[in-house]
Every structure is written in C-alpha cells, then in structure tokens.
Design a protein around this nucleic acid. Structure first.
Length: 491
RNA sequence: GGCGCUGUGGCCGAGUGGCUAGGCAGAGGUCUGCAAAACCUUUUACAGCGGUUCGAAUCCGCUCAGCGCCUCCA
C-alpha cells in the first residue's frame, strides 16, 4: 500500500509493467549546498528504492540534477539561480553546477544512499525540452510571446483539471493570483514558462525556434521522466513543497503533450522543521550536513554523525513533519548504536544445538515480529514502525547472546529467519551501517586481548584502566557469564 | 482570504474502532570484583467540548493551539 497524493488515499501498489518499476524523484537545484531537509527526501526515497528492490522489482530510479531554468524569483521573471551564482563568483555556470553536484553526491554517500539508475541533467536535455514546448505549441496549449513560450493554463483547463494534484481550482487561483507588473507577457498570471527568452546579460542560453533562451523549470522533469521512464510511469516523488506548482505543471505539460497522465502514484515527503517551523534556505534556519557532523551550527549542542541523523529521520514516517532538536538527536544516537550493536551480535551468531526445549509461545511471538517488519514496510513504507519491530527482535537476539534465551527454544529454522530478517532490514533496506574510523577493529581487538588477560589474572586496577581506555574509543565492555565482548558506547 | 495538515505519556515518535508500538529518560530487579552492557518488571498518554457506537486516541461536529502550500525551496 502506498499513499498516493493524487487520490489522497492509500492504494495497493501495482506497477504498470511488473516486475519493472519506474520511479522519478526531483533532485536538487545545484546552486548551493544541499541542506538537511533536502537530504530527508532523498533518504526517504532511497529506502523506498531499496525496499522495492528487496521485493524483487526491477526498478529504474531516475533522479535529476537541475542545472538550469530555476529562477531566483516568482513569476518567471527572476534571474536563473545557477546563472546568478556564476555571475557573482565569476565562474562558468557549469562550474557552479558541477561543484554543488559533487558536494551533493558526497553528502548522499555519507548517508549511505544508493546511486540512482540514471541521473540526468536538465542542460543535457535542451533539445528534448524544445521539442516538448513545440509539441505543446502545436497542440494549441502554449503560445509564444516575444521569444518566450508560455503554457496556457486556462485553455488546458477547459478539457483537463489543472490543480488536481494540489487540490485547487483555477478560479480561486486566478482570484488570489498576485498582481505583478512584469507579467504582461502572459495571458494569465497562472500561466507558466516553457521557454524564456534570454536577456542580453543572461549567461545560460541556447538557440531555439524562438530565439536564444533557456527552458522553464517544470519542463525538464516532464521531458526526462518521459524519455527514461515512458509517457506513463509508476512513481514520482519529491518534497511536499514541490506539489504546487512544480508537479502540477508537470502533469499539465505531459497531459498536454502526450494526452495521458504521466504518473500513477505521486509520493510526497514532508518537511523537516526547526522549532516547529519549516527548515528552508530562505528562512535561514536550515542546517548544512557538514555543520551537523561537526556540531558547528549555533542551534546544535554537539556533533551528530550521518547515521545518527539518518536513523533519526527513519524513526518518523516520511509523510509527517519531523522536528529537529538536540534532545531528539541524542535519543536517536543511542537508539542507532543499540541497533548497530545488535547487528554486530547477530552477524557473528550462529545456530547452537543447546538443550533448550521448543517454546511455542515464544516462537509465535517471534514469528509475528518477523512478519510485522514486512507488513510495516508494506504499509506505505512505515520505517518508524519497522524500526520498532526490529527492536523487538533485537531483544530476542540479545537474550540469545547473553544466554538468557536458549537456541533450542526458538528452533533452528526460526533462528535463521530471525537473523536473516534483522540483518536484511537494518543493512539492505534501511541502509544503516556501522560507523568506525580506520584501524578501529585492530585497536579494539588489541585492547580486548589485554582486558581478557587482566581479567583472568583478576588484576582489577588494570582491568579498570583498560576499560577506561576502551571507553575513550567509544567502546564499552560486555562481561557475560561465559564470554567477554564489546559494544559501541551508547552515551 | 482559498486549499490542506497537525495536536499522543518527561522528550521524540508509530498507531484509524476493541488486542503491549518503539527509542530516549525515570523506578525496581537479575547478572557482576565493582561497574557497564544485556535481559525482566514497572510509572507517566491520546488538546478541549459534544456526538455516533456495546466499545473511540482512532469516525463525525464545534472550539482552541500550531504549521504548510498558494512566491524560490525537498
């Protein structure tokens, strides 16, 4: 089941051409560093992508890079964001785009996100965008004024519903539309640009049938979605704030050009908030990932690692707002470490034929918990609920590890499925990984060897000393009845 | 103003009609050289008012509070 923004309901997910799934996610505009809110969207869709792969779908995941066409201001009148930055820094626009695209990739890698199948750039598809604008002109749904081409929303709305995604109607939009003096080229304020004539100072420009210019922002996604996924594809994702006008315009363009709805399931991620307010570039309350990792933002008490932040995000549902605070992040860090400690334990654990007798109540409970992981993900990718279930499984794993639960009580088959489930969900589906510096394992093993020796000799002062040294490296010792192990310090 | 969303225990955050979410924090216990980790038990809930129902955090209405989109933003 997925929540479809278009219908406003949860629907059964049925791909158009199983086992293939086409998924398009609006990527970043590369004119500045990605902030954490952007990251949330990509983290969410990464998990969705991973889960669909896990279910056996052959997913083509397209996530674009917007490197032209995104204007600084409303009303299609501002300066291009990339172009402006290029002018300010006296660089080629492509240098700007490349720099921030690189930074974007670095950040996503720190969060352990899988790369998309295709990552097309808007500037690489100028020809196709011109063709689509021309097609809309031919279909009578666009008009050219003075070297610019605009989409005729009113005309389109005669036979279609402009506003069906964002649940608006154009009468209201016409009334509440802002009166901006510079809009005289457009027939109606709600029309939007498919192609803009380049002013003499505009750096980014391409030849077109209408003179030198550049494409409108909404066009690229329609074009690239159609090119790589077809005229109709399964999933289109993006942040809530793109619903209108961006996604609405995409629908209008595609329907206008090809006569069919481009997307079957629209998925929108909700916003990250800070003190209850949307985190956004323009409000200046957004964190940059590296500020978070370094703890260098005034609102942060200390540094939080990528996996801590990712775990924090996954503990809520993608369609809910999520409020950022130091307290919440600290709690998430402990939770994350607990989960990863569990991963370390289960990885090394193998079935042991002990004298435990099958415990039916326990077996039923574990069966249910295993099944619940899948059903939670099946229910609109509910990672929060999934994590809750994984913690339930973790209790069993830890009980086995400490000898408080016997393997025989579970049975070999169930134990193997428990292990399989925990590892698959944590690593492959949620994409959570162990964070450790280079040489960490060797250092810890060396200290642990000393610890065991001192412990065996009952040299308590020495034991405490080594314990403190380990603690400094973020490790706590676990003394158990019959063995000694370590875990990541959760504090 | 239009459209929409949210309000859960000390904190975060799932949950859409009856069945323990979970994490963090707190309390007690088991274990331990002492601890820690782990496990077990346990305290604190569903903004307010009214309605539907055998039964509501969950459905409906109203009130209050907060937020989002309508302009660039994931």
């Amino acid at each position: 089941m997925v929540y479809n923004s278009l219908s406003g309901k949860k629907e059964v997910f049925e791909p158009l051409n199983p086992p293939f799934v086409g998924m398009y996610v609006c990527g970043p505009t590369v004119y500045s560093d990605v902030h954490l809110g952007n990251v949330r969207t990509f983290v969410s869709f990464d998990v969705i992508y991973r889960y669909l792969l896990h279910l056996g779908y052959k997913v083509r995941y397209v996530r674009n890079i917007t490197d032209v066409g995104h204007l600084e201001n409303d009303a299609d009148e501002g300066e291009d964001k990339i172009g402006k930055k290029a002018r300010l820094e006296n660089l080629e626009p492509m240098e700007i785009a490349q720099r921030y695209a690189n930074g974007f990739h670095e950040v996503l890698q720190q969060f352990n996100l899988l790369p998309p199948s295709i990552e097309p750039a808007a500037t690489g598809h100028i020809v196709e965008q011109i063709a689509m604008a021309q097609k809309l002109l031919d279909n009578g749904l666009a008009y050219e004024v003075n070297g610019s081409v605009y989409f005729d929303v009113t005309k389109y709305n005669q036979n279609h519903h402009y506003g069906k995604l964002s649940k608006r109607n154009i009468e209201e939009m016409m009334e509440s539309g802002r009166e901006l003096a510079a809009q005289d080229e457009k027939r109606n304020p709600i029309d939007f640009a498919l192609w803009k004539k380049a002013s003499p100072v505009h750096i980014m420009r391409w030849p077109s049938p209408w003179g030198e210019g550049f494409p409108g922002w909404h066009l690229e996604c329609s074009v690239m979605g159609q090119k790589y996924l077809g005229e109709t594809f399964d999933i289109h994702g993006g942040g809530m704030d793109l619903k209108f006008p961006h996604h609405e315009c995409e629908i209008a363009q595609s329907v206008g050009a090809y006569g069919k709805d481009p997307v079957r399931y629209w998925l929108h991620t909700n916003m990250l908030t800070v003190n209850g307010q949307k985190m956004s570039k323009s409000l200046g309350n957004s964190f940059l990932p590296h500020e978070l990792f370094a703890g260098s933002h005034p609102l942060l008490d200390e540094a939080y690692s990528p996996m801590t932040v990712k775990f924090f995000m996954l503990q809520s549902h993608y369609s809910s707002t999520l409020d950022f605070s130091n307290e919440a992040l600290k709690a998430a860090r402990k939770g994350y470490k607990r989960m990863i400690n569990g991963l370390r334990v289960i990885r090394k654990m193998t079935w042991q034929d002990d004298d435990g007798q099958p415990n039916e109540a326990l077996q039923n409970q574990v069966e249910k918990q295993i099944a619940a992981c899948t059903s939670a993900m099946n229910d609109d990718f509910n990672t929060a609920l999934t994590i809750g279930q994984l913690f339930n499984l973790l209790k069993k794993i830890n009980s086995l590890h400490s000898g408080q639960l016997k393997f025989g009580e579970l049975g070999e088959d169930l134990f193997n499925r428990l292990k399989q489930t925990y590892m698959t969900f944590v690593e492959d589906i949620l994409g959570l990984i162990e964070e450790k510096p280079a040489g960490f394992d060797e250092l810890v093993e060396a200290l642990m060897t000393l610890y065991r020796e001192a412990k065996h000799a009952k040299d308590w002062p020495r034991v405490d000393e080594i314990r403190a040294a380990l603690k400094e490296n973020g490790v706590v010792v676990k003394d158990m009845k019959d063995k000694i192990d370590w875990a990541y310090d959760e504090s």
